[in-house]
Write a protein that binds this DNA or RNA. Sequence first.
DNA 1: AGGCAGGCTTTTA
DNA 2: TAAAAGCCTGCC
Length: 272
Amino acid sequence: MITVKITDDFDLKKIADSGQCFRWQPIENDGYRVIHGDHCLCIWKAEDDCSYELDCTDDEYNDVWSPYLDMDEDYQSIRTKIDINSDPFLYEACEHECGIRILRQDPWEALISFIISQNRNIPAIKASIEKLCERAGEKRYDGRGEVYYTFPKPEAIAAMSDESLDECKLGYRDKYIRRTAEAVVNGKLDLKAIAALPDDEILPSLMSIYGVGRKVASCMLLFGLHHLDAFPVDVWIKRVLETEYSNDYPFDNYSPYNGVYQQYMFAYYRNK
DNA sequence: AGGCAGGCTTTTA
DNA sequence: TAAAAGCCTGCC
């Protein structure tokens, strides 16, 4: 168990409920259990105002969790760039949702998660992903001795039986998931190669994946490839752009952090 | 070329 | 019953 002092914007609940990740699990004492690749972390807020307790070593924090939590980015600085007079709505959203960060999630997990997310609400998304992990992931135990499952690798999903995949309640998305997994296994889809493309080629490349449209590709770009300027437009954000900005949102002013501001607005508008 | 209608699974409110 | 962090196909 280690204690870490975090002075930048950081709110466990806001991150967990932000809709960017689907496997943060609330645990005892207002903590959360977080799974990332082969690693699992339990984290609690300490009494001290900006300290947290984590059940990992200093090395694991430095190598895995600090990057995952994007601790090298200064969110307070990004958040306070917004001027209350020139954009009162976004200013209010930033204040209200202060504490959200954009996690550096595993690209493969993000891609599959956001394909599953289409046309569904968050509880349903979480249920499908958890079932997928139980059926194709690897069984492990966290620091408290409780079971968790890793997110299944492409090979594991490609090898699932139709029955097993059916049990994940993916609906019409099951064929997207299966084909995407198969494409990675047989080498037709290389996420690392896509990530290495010039910025303007990544979105079209992601959209060529079966089952991936502009929205899911943008989520993958922002949450899976950490392009903080990517701006996913879903039904909520569409309403925001219409009602608050008359479809004339000043993207240029907010580059290269459009995606971060999108997260504040999404959470703010959805919670209202 | 780009836009639109209809269909799609299941869960949630 | 409608809506939910949409996409695909077919048609124009």
